[in-house]
Amino acid sequence: MKYKILIWLPVVVIASIIFWFSDQPYQEQDVKPFLGDFINEKWIEGSFDWVQFDYAGYEVSTEKLGGTAFVEFFIRKGAHFGIFFLLGFFTYRALIQTLLKRRITTGFISSIVFVFIYAVQDELHQHFTGNRTPLIHDVGIDTIGGIVGISLYMLFNHCNPKQ
């Protein structure tokens, strides 16, 4: 029993971190003032002036956002990808080691479904948080992050000839 709790603990901790961040208004997460102290905004704007794309109906470019907000956009989306990468990785590990006993396909699908549902819940939660915008695009980034985490766990653990 203690073993199962320890295996599931990272999943609970990561899910709690995601929930905690979703519960914070944007102003509490704004890293632009911090970034402004460490990056050369003019250099970012000059070096990345060729980057321009649409994300959820908003233009992402140094011209539109400025250098600091442009960098913050990528940090925020990278954080989405990274935290859900970890959620997928540890969810798959926990399922395979405790409930599914090496049923790889079932574990893969179950983990993806869990990550997707948690990503949707995360965006719904943000809908009720001040100055936060729920975006289906973020669900996509989150789910892809989870799939990559699950896939890497599978690659390193199921393809290992020592097991």
Rank of each mutant, 00 (worst) to 15 (best):
V71I: 15
F85H: 03
F38C: 05
L152S: 01
S47I: 03
P134F: 01
F156D: 03
K32C: 14
F114A: 14
I44S: 02
I7R: 10
Q27I: 14
H80P: 06
F81H: 02
S16Y: 07
T105E: 15
Q27P: 03
T68K: 09
I39Q: 07
L9T: 15
I144Y: 05
L135H: 03
I17D: 02
W20Y: 15
Q52I: 04
V13F: 03
S61I: 13
I7W: 05
F53T: 02
G130Y: 13
K101F: 11
D122A: 04
Y55C: 09
Q24D: 11
D37K: 08
G140Q: 09
V115W: 04
A15C: 14
S22K: 05
Q52Y: 08
L95G: 00
I109V: 15
T98H: 01
F128C: 01
R102Y: 12
V31R: 06
Y92G: 08
L9M: 13
F48A: 02
L100K: 10
F114M: 13
G107W: 11
G88A: 11
V120R: 06
T106D: 04
K2W: 09
Q126W: 01
V31A: 11
G66C: 05
G88E: 03
F48G: 01
P25H: 11
S61K: 06
W8Q: 10
L152D: 00
H80C: 04
Q24S: 11
D49R: 11
S111Y: 06
M154K: 00
A119D: 12
K2F: 13
H125L: 08
N131F: 12
G146W: 10
T91P: 02
W50D: 08
T133I: 06
S151W: 12
A56G: 09
E59D: 13
H137V: 02
E28P: 02
I112C: 12
V12A: 15
I150R: 11
E59Y: 09
Q163I: 13
I39G: 06
Q52N: 13
D122T: 05
Y55N: 14
P33C: 03
I109W: 14
L65R: 05
L99K: 14
G78N: 10
T91A: 05
L152N: 07
T143G: 11
Y118V: 15
L87N: 00
H80R: 12
I141N: 12
Y26R: 11
F128M: 06
Q97E: 10
Q27W: 13
F74M: 05
A79M: 11
I141C: 04
D30Q: 07
P134L: 01
I150Q: 06
F116G: 08
E28F: 13
I17C: 01
F81V: 00
T106Q: 15
F74K: 01
A79N: 07
Q97F: 02
G88V: 13
F108M: 15
K101Q: 14
G88H: 10
P25D: 09
Y153R: 07
L95D: 01
A56N: 10
F84Q: 04
I150K: 12
N157G: 06
V139I: 09
L100N: 04
L65A: 08
C159K: 10
L99H: 09
V51A: 00
R102C: 07
G66L: 03
L99P: 06
E41A: 14
L155A: 11
Y55D: 07
